Amino acid sequence: MSVILYARVSTTDQTIEHQETQARRAGFEIDGVVSDHGTSGLSTKLAERSEGKRLYDMLRKGDTLVVRWVDRLGRNYQDVCDVIREFMRKGITIRTVINNMTFDGATTDPIQQAVRDALIAFMAATAQAQAEATKEAQKAGIAHAKTKTVKYRGRKPTYDRDQFQLVRDMLTNGAGASAIAKASKLTRQTVLRIKSEPGQAEAALLAWGL
């Protein structure tokens, strides 16, 4: 039985290495990493991605698939639900690094199945909502950045693109500022600033080419 980490990055500012490091720090013993670069989870299904196809071929009954969060599998509600349920039917366990969630097909109790399926649906819906919110924040950030010249781009952000995305992910999942600060290695004040002004936080990254 193998433990496979699937990592996906949609921009050059994100890194596969960060997702792997985060998983190992959370206590996951990873046997292999499958990754897709420059791929949008909102417009491209997992089965249509080059390495996503390989993931379907290599995973077997009893294996565990690890992802940072369900949004790595997709950003579309129906796609995420379908992917998780298909893997469960094949006897594959899905685990998330953020929130340490586990999804498998082990239970036969209808009530437990209903609770599990409702949670999957909720997380899938959250993934799509987050993707749409991120697009709006990026638009706001670009618009804000265009109003500034390089001369007045302000102080360099104390966070990078990966930390910014982690903060956004954990905020979407309802995590508190203190927990996010610990996970992202940022100050609580920085987390709260990103939470209150995501557009400006995005603009600061863009202004500095981050």
Rank of each mutant, 00 (worst) to 15 (best):
residue 75 R to T: 03
residue 107 T to W: 08
residue 150 V to S: 08
residue 104 D to A: 05
residue 11 T to M: 06
residue 166 L to Y: 01
residue 104 D to I: 06
residue 47 A to E: 14
residue 79 D to P: 03
residue 1 M to G: 11
residue 55 L to Y: 06
residue 205 L to H: 07
residue 176 G to T: 03
residue 11 T to C: 07
residue 173 N to E: 13
residue 5 L to P: 04
residue 62 G to W: 11
residue 32 G to S: 13
residue 52 G to M: 10
residue 170 M to C: 02
residue 151 K to E: 13
residue 119 L to Q: 07
residue 152 Y to T: 10
residue 42 L to G: 10
residue 144 H to A: 14
residue 90 K to A: 14
residue 142 I to V: 04
residue 187 T to I: 04
residue 130 Q to E: 06
residue 5 L to C: 05
residue 138 Q to I: 11
residue 203 A to N: 05
residue 95 R to G: 10
residue 72 R to E: 14
residue 202 E to C: 08
residue 36 D to A: 10
residue 155 R to C: 05
residue 160 D to A: 13
residue 18 H to Q: 05
residue 154 G to D: 03
residue 159 Y to S: 07
residue 49 R to E: 05
residue 48 E to C: 04
residue 97 V to M: 06
residue 144 H to T: 08
residue 27 G to F: 15
residue 117 D to Y: 03
residue 76 N to P: 00
residue 40 S to I: 09
residue 140 A to T: 10
residue 4 I to F: 02
residue 177 A to V: 07
residue 102 T to R: 14
residue 193 R to S: 10
residue 36 D to M: 09
residue 83 V to W: 05
residue 48 E to G: 01
residue 135 K to P: 00
residue 19 Q to G: 02
residue 44 T to F: 08
residue 120 I to R: 05
residue 39 T to W: 11
residue 111 I to K: 09
residue 112 Q to W: 03
residue 132 E to K: 01
residue 205 L to G: 12
residue 192 L to P: 00
residue 196 S to C: 00
residue 67 V to T: 03
residue 33 V to E: 15
residue 25 R to H: 08
residue 141 G to D: 08
residue 91 G to P: 02
residue 169 D to F: 10
residue 207 A to T: 01
residue 37 H to I: 11
residue 113 Q to G: 05
residue 195 K to H: 06
residue 190 T to A: 14
residue 113 Q to S: 06
residue 133 A to V: 01
residue 8 R to Y: 06
residue 24 R to G: 04
residue 124 A to F: 02
residue 46 L to H: 01
residue 67 V to I: 12
residue 25 R to E: 14
residue 121 A to G: 13
residue 69 W to H: 13
residue 210 L to T: 02
residue 155 R to L: 14
residue 57 D to A: 11
residue 8 R to H: 00
residue 166 L to V: 07
residue 155 R to S: 14
residue 148 K to F: 11
residue 169 D to G: 01
residue 120 I to M: 09
residue 203 A to M: 05
residue 60 R to L: 08
residue 133 A to P: 00
residue 27 G to Y: 11
residue 184 S to H: 02
residue 101 M to Y: 07
residue 83 V to C: 01
residue 122 F to S: 09
residue 190 T to E: 10
residue 112 Q to N: 05
residue 98 I to P: 00
residue 78 Q to W: 11
residue 193 R to D: 11
residue 172 T to K: 03
residue 63 D to Y: 02
residue 183 A to M: 08
residue 24 R to V: 13
residue 55 L to F: 06
residue 85 R to H: 00
residue 79 D to H: 12
residue 48 E to A: 15
residue 201 A to G: 15
residue 70 V to G: 02
residue 141 G to V: 10
residue 18 H to R: 10
residue 177 A to S: 14
residue 26 A to I: 04
residue 39 T to M: 15
residue 56 Y to K: 04
residue 174 G to N: 03
residue 53 K to H: 12
residue 16 I to W: 10
residue 196 S to G: 00
residue 56 Y to N: 01
residue 92 I to S: 06
residue 96 T to F: 03
residue 38 G to I: 06
residue 158 T to D: 15
residue 153 R to I: 08
residue 134 T to A: 10
residue 7 A to K: 01
residue 7 A to I: 09
residue 28 F to Q: 08
residue 209 G to N: 11
residue 187 T to E: 08
residue 144 H to V: 00
residue 11 T to I: 06
residue 172 T to N: 09
residue 95 R to M: 15
residue 76 N to C: 09
residue 156 K to G: 00
residue 43 S to R: 10
